[in-house]
Simulated assay, not measured.
Amino acid sequence: MSATHSSRLQAVVFDWAGTILDFGSCAPMGAFVKLFEQFGIEITIAEARGPMGMAKWDHIKALGSQPRIAAQWEAKHGHAFNDADVDRLYEVFTPMNAASARDHADFIPGALDAVAAARARGMKIGSTTGYNRPIMEVVAAIAAQGGYVPDNLVCAGDLAAGRPSPLMMYRCFADLGVWPAHAVVKVDDTGVGLEEGLNAGTWAVGLAVSGNVMGLTLAEWQALGADEQQARREQATEQLKAAGAHYVIDSVAELMPVLDDIERRLAAGERPGR
């Protein structure tokens, strides 16, 4: 392997909601609350956000397994929450989330510019998501109309395991024809999304403001005072750093200086590690 091949970044793999579009990752939230409500169960937005980034089937199972929600389910339905229940909810959830995604498909400010700048560096643009194929058929079509067409798309359910396993990233390596892993950057707004990159051996860049950890719409974020913004930014940054992020930035709009720094570190012989 040449030194150049080893020290230049070849691809950036973006998450979708909370990363490229849907500031605050809001589309799934109302859908999860509404979903459980249909089955007579009350959950909060904070509870719904907890497992964000996982495949949606796994996300529903994680929610139904939480003690407070599990107790409600058993009282209402007369049995412990089980995989058959997850299957039932998942069937209802997919069209519900697809409909919600249509209403939360605006690009995050600076996202298209960041993608264009990465391409101008000669990098491939990969993508993974916790959404399944039916939901992404809706989301990807809207994104394409707006000018975003990544070089590949790997959805939850495409492979034997989703996040935090590295399998979707391995599919990206194969689809994009890129290697070694340290020549790839994963950009995500969730802990499990960062972990899928880390487990595959890539660099990991967390997004503190635009995504699920912050959980605010763009208007809600802009309405906060500077001190409140900074306090919340620091809290979100801590969470993403705890998940293993090598860098944490507000949104993809700030990605280019990070790519410059990673290439500097690669040239000096540094590697991501865990």
Score class of each variant (00 low, 15 high):
P51M: 07
P51F: 06
P51V: 05
M54R: 15
M54Q: 14
A55N: 13
K56E: 00
K56L: 02
K56V: 00
D58P: 08
H59Y: 06
K61C: 12
L63N: 10
P67G: 09
A71C: 11
A71V: 11
A71P: 01
Q72V: 05
Q72M: 08
W73E: 08
E74Q: 15
K76E: 13
H77D: 01
H77A: 03
A80S: 13
N82Y: 10
N82H: 13
N82I: 13
D83K: 14
D85F: 04
D85P: 03
V86H: 00
V86R: 03
R88E: 13
Y90F: 15
Y90A: 13
E91F: 09
V92M: 12
V92C: 14
V92H: 13
P95R: 02
M96G: 05
N97S: 12
A98D: 06
S100M: 09
D103S: 14
H104V: 06
H104T: 03
A105E: 02
F107H: 07
F107M: 14
I108F: 04
I108T: 09
A111L: 02
L112Y: 11
L112I: 15
A114Y: 07
V115R: 03
A116V: 10
A116H: 13
A116Q: 14
A117L: 11
A120M: 08
A120W: 09
R121K: 04
R121G: 04
M123C: 07
I125F: 03
S127F: 07
T129N: 06
T129I: 07
N132V: 15
R133C: 01
P134M: 00
V138Q: 04
I142G: 00
A143H: 10
A143L: 13
Q145A: 14
Q145C: 12
V149A: 10
D151P: 01
D151Q: 02
L153Y: 09
V154R: 01
C155G: 04
A156E: 02
A156K: 02
G157M: 05
D158M: 06
L159M: 05
L159S: 08
L159H: 06
A160D: 12
A161F: 14
R163C: 01
S165D: 11
P166C: 07
P166Y: 03
P166N: 05
M168E: 02
M169D: 08
M169I: 14
M169S: 06
R171D: 03
R171N: 02
C172V: 08
F173Q: 00
D175R: 02
L176H: 02
G177C: 00
P180F: 07
A181W: 03
A181M: 00
A183S: 15
A183G: 10
V185A: 05
V187L: 12
T190P: 10
T190S: 14
G193Y: 01
E195A: 15
E196M: 10
E196H: 09
E196A: 09
G197M: 09
